[in-house]
Each structure stands twice: as structure tokens, then as C-alpha cells.
Design a protein around this nucleic acid. Structure first.
Ligand code: MN
Ligand code: MN
Ligand code: ZN
Ligand code: ZN
Lengths: 136, 136
DNA sequence: TCCGGAAATTAGACAAAGTCCAGATTGGTG
DNA sequence: CACCAATCTGGACTTTGTCTAATTTCCGGA
């Protein structure tokens, strides 16, 4: 699958998001790259040619995408949140030195032996992060 | 085991940390409670009676404790880092609504099927976070 | 005890990520 | 065109964390 700006409007609509120019640009930044991007990086990408989108709109839009389940949040770096266009079940590999973040397909990973949840609680998600670095 | 201020000096020395008044207070805040605390919370605890320790010292000290392996960092909330006096192998249960963070003993949890690491890389740690919330 | 220097602490300026708000713009409808 | 709701905007603001230059504390030797 290959994400063009034209595709984006349909993708947004299918997630109950009104497709505006700014929202299409932001979605395109994430989905065409299929990378984990911070708000700052999204802002830079969207405003490369000429300034098009304000900081407030970038943050508001990313939060909207999150609420609508179009993207996922990855909390791995204490200084910034990453937004992930891959919402399928997967885990993360994080290079602590470089900040490079990559996906681990959850299909073959198995987690067992977790204790029962406190009553009245449901799991919202399980985040598994493998932190790696260059051998000393 | 029961952590008093008097114990703290020995604990610090055993981790190659020169025990100063401020460091003892900060270690005591963490170890006597055995809770996950943010820098802000540590600051508030240490300065309850009368102001004793500056913000710079709180941050410097927590970073020092981290480098020396006395505490561990837990990155789970996008807005602040938690410091964890429990450095043994364990995972975390995070209540997204309340921000409550609790430990899951790693003894019975098994993670299998992780892909091989890229060559020349070593694992620094595996963080498993179970995000839960109150049932709708 | 006094001195010198290293280690530690400090206040406060600074930086970066993210939030908030009141006003302006947009886009559809009658 | 006029109206209204949704969206977008600049910029002030907040919070978390970092940095620095000056001060204080600590300790070993004279
Ligand atoms: Mn989806
Ligand atoms: Mn230890
Ligand atoms: Zn991912
Ligand atoms: Zn813990």
C-alpha cells in the first residue's frame, strides 16, 4: 500500500475525521513515511516548502488522530512523544544512543505469566520496549 | 528491610556515592517509601519541613543515583520521568486515568519470540508496561 | 588550628515540549 | 451575499529539565 495525499482524505473520513488541508498534510507526513515522528518533526516536514501549519494545529491534530485511533503514541524518550502510524499490534526496539526507534512485529512475541488485573480494570495496551545500545 | 536515614549512608557508599546530607535525604525519600517518585515529588518531600535542597541538586542527585545503579528510571508518562528504588527485575502496571504506577514481579513473567538483535548491539533492558483503566 | 583545593550545592537564567486562548479564517447553507 | 460552526492561528503561558557562575562544605596536610 502506497499513501498519497489523495488517499489521505478517505483515510481520515474512515476514522471520522473531517479532512482539512492541514490534517491531510500531517497524515501524509506520517503515513507516507511509515516512521515514528515527534510533533516537532511533523511540524518541520509539513512546513518545509513554505509555512503552512501552526504549532497549535500540529499538536491539536496529532491529539485528534490519537483519540480517533488513527495513530498511536510511543513513550520511550523522556523528552518527547513519538507518533506511530502503525496501529497494529507491535512492540518497539529503541537504540538509546541514537534515539532510533523501530518496530517489532507482535505476531511471534509471546508474553505469559502476567498477574490478573485488579477488579473492574481492563487492559488498554501492553507496551514492550527493548532498549539496546552499541556493545562497549 | 526497613530504611532509616542512618542506613542510607552505607547504601550510598556501597554504590560508590559520597553520602552528603542532601543525598541522604533524597535516598531516604525514595527508599523509605519504596514508591515511584518524580523529581518534583522528591523535591516536595525533601523540602517539607524547611527548604533544604535546591532543584538543581535534586536533578543532579537523581541522575547520579541512576548512573550508579541505585535507582531506575521509568518512562511511562509523557510529561515526567519516575524514579524507582526497585532495581530488581520487574515490570510495571500503569493506571492511565490516575497515573498510579505499581510493580509486577518479573519472576513469573515470560517473554519469548523476540527477534535477534542487530549485530554489535546489546540489550540494556526490556521494559514491559501494562496500561490499564477502569472498565467503561 | 589554619589553609588550600576539590567536591558539592545553590539561585536563577535558560531551553524545549506542550497547552491555552481569543481572534481570524474557512467552508458550507439558505 | 450573509450567517454559522468548525478550524486554524500567533503568541503568551506552564512545566520539566538543564546549565552556569558563584558560594559553601569538606577534608587532608602544614
Ligand atoms: Mn485504524
Ligand atoms: Mn543496587
Ligand atoms: Zn511502532
Ligand atoms: Zn518499579
Amino acid at each position: 500500500m502506497h499513501y498519497t495525499r489523495d488517499n489521505m482524505a478517505g483515510l481520515l473520513r474512515s476514522h471520522d475525521i473531517n479532512p482539512t488541508h492541514q490534517r491531510i498534510e500531517i497524515a501524509h507526513a506520517l503515513f507516507s513515511r511509515q516512521e515514528h515522528l515527534s510533533a516537532d518533526q511533523v511540524m518541520a516536514i509539513v512546513n518545509t516548502r513554505h509555512s503552512e501549519t501552526s504549532k497549535a494545529t500540529v499538536y491539536n491534530t496529532l491529539k485528534l488522530f490519537l483519540e480517533k485511533g488513527l495513530v498511536r503514541e510511543v513513550i520511550v524518550d523522556p523528552s518527547k512523544v513519538f507518533f506511530d502510524p502503525n496501529t497494529g499490534p507491535h512492540h518497539h526496539l529503541y537504540e538509546v544512543d541514537t534515539g532510533k526507534l523501530s518496530d517489532i512485529d507482535a505476531a511471534h512475541v509471546q508474553i505469559s505469566g502476567l498477574p490478573p488485573l485488579p477488579p473492574g480494570m481492563v487492559t488498554e495496551g501492553i507496551d514492550l520496549i527493548v532498549r539496546i545500545r552499541r556493545k562497549a
